[in-house]
Simulated assay, not measured.
Amino acid sequence: MGNLFKKILRQYLEYPRADRNVIIVLVAMILITIFVNELVKCLPEKPDEDYSTLLEKLKIWEETEQNREAARTTFSPFDPNTISEEELNSLSIPRQVARNIIKYRNTGAIFSKPSDLRRIYGMDDSIFSRIEPYLQFPSQKAIYPKKKETLPAEMEHIGSFDPNIATAERLKLFGFNSFQTDNIIRYREKGGQFKLKQDLLKIYGVDTPFFEKLAPHIKIQPTKNSAQVKEEKLDFVTIDLNSADTSQLKKLPGIGPVFATRIVKYRILLGGFSKPSQLLEVYGFPPETYYAIENQITTDTTNISRIRINFADYAELIRHPYFNQEMVKAMIKYRDNNGIIQQLNELEEIKGFDKQTIEKIRPYITCR
């Protein structure tokens, strides 16, 4: 027996060190497996678990949730003009839709028929079909007797106002809420004008009952006649599109802060306007506005920025609105193969450059 052990040990030591380590690990794993297997056999068997208590609690929880959901989705007749936000949230109406209903009412608007609720953002067909049978619309006279009293009682003593020039404070003095006042101011800033009293009904949030109470106090100043307007146009100083800033551009009729900013940005992209009609290239610029101010605008082309096409790289060329990728790549390839471009007419040999295109970009490029 001793000789057998020595023989096995001698053979074991003949293996390389790495192989001996692997043998040790394998033997250890075998021994651990045998030990664990015997240990499991010695453990007492665990009796079957009794899940009856857990299942009973789960059943009770499900019944509670079902009852809660049934209570939450139970509708009763309600008036959308008077129901509170808390009561709306107790129904199966999404919170965002409930908030939008309250916001709509806060503008002074009234729901007079079921279809009015379809105006609410987020009110889809499934929500509307669930609540429609429960909507109630009692007579507005009985339910909202104070609706006609939205204006201050002392308004009879404060005279009249012109919606074209009245300040926000003045409008609020006549009973306009903040929402209505902001809409009137924005309407005027965009170039809108009230020519008739009834034009106030164009303002979102101003309804007929409110307007009828307000109408006796609206005094719109008469607009200038055509002769006066013509005389003012003759006296109006022309504006150079290449030097005017946004404040000067806004003096032109029909041009507000948005178009003034777009004109300046487009002028920078171009390098300057070479002719007034390029205003029509400004995003969204109305042709009728251009023709109305055509005689009041000029373009001084002496300071137009020109691109040196023999030295400009791809990034500089592609920034210009009149160049596209195909044109820029073709020009650079032509320049690499043939050297510098001596005359602008050579561009006709390049793909994408016809006579019309060359004349269009001529003010903005140079061969120098």
Rank of each mutant, 00 (worst) to 15 (best):
I293P: 08
L31C: 06
L344I: 15
L39H: 08
S277I: 14
I60W: 10
S129G: 04
E62M: 09
R368S: 10
Y15M: 14
H217S: 09
N225E: 12
I131F: 08
P16Y: 02
E49K: 12
R319K: 13
D116L: 07
E294D: 09
S305A: 11
R368V: 12
I263W: 03
I184S: 06
P253F: 08
F137I: 07
L58R: 14
E49R: 14
I239R: 01
T74M: 09
D336M: 08
A71K: 15
K275N: 11
T261M: 09
L280E: 13
W61P: 00
T53Q: 14
N177P: 04
Q96W: 07
T223F: 15
D48P: 09
D207W: 00
I30P: 00
I83R: 06
E69S: 04
Y204W: 10
K230C: 02
T53V: 15
G256D: 09
A292E: 09
R170P: 00
P276E: 13
N303I: 10
G191W: 05
Q180T: 07
I83M: 03
I293D: 10
P222E: 12
L270R: 01
R368M: 06
M29C: 13
S112M: 11
D162E: 02
N225G: 11
P163R: 09
R186I: 08
A142F: 11
F323N: 02
F161N: 01
R306K: 15
I32L: 14
K113P: 01
S247I: 13
D240S: 02
A18Q: 14
M29I: 15
P152S: 03
R118C: 04
D354T: 04
Q136E: 11
F161T: 02
E359D: 13
G352R: 01
P253E: 11
D124S: 01
L269Q: 15
K230A: 15
L201R: 05
M29H: 01
P80L: 12
P77M: 04
L196R: 12
D199P: 06
F311L: 14
I110L: 04
K351T: 06
I218W: 10
R362K: 15
S92R: 12
D116P: 06
D245E: 12
I131P: 02
Y334E: 00
A292C: 00
R335E: 00
E281Y: 06
E49S: 13
L88M: 08
P94C: 03
D313P: 07
F311T: 15
K172F: 03
P363F: 01
R118I: 04
V27W: 10
K103D: 13
T107K: 09
M1P: 02
I297G: 00
P286Q: 05
D207E: 12
L173M: 13
D182R: 15
P16K: 08
C367I: 15
H157N: 10
D207H: 02
D245S: 05
F137C: 03
R130W: 03
L201F: 08
N242V: 00
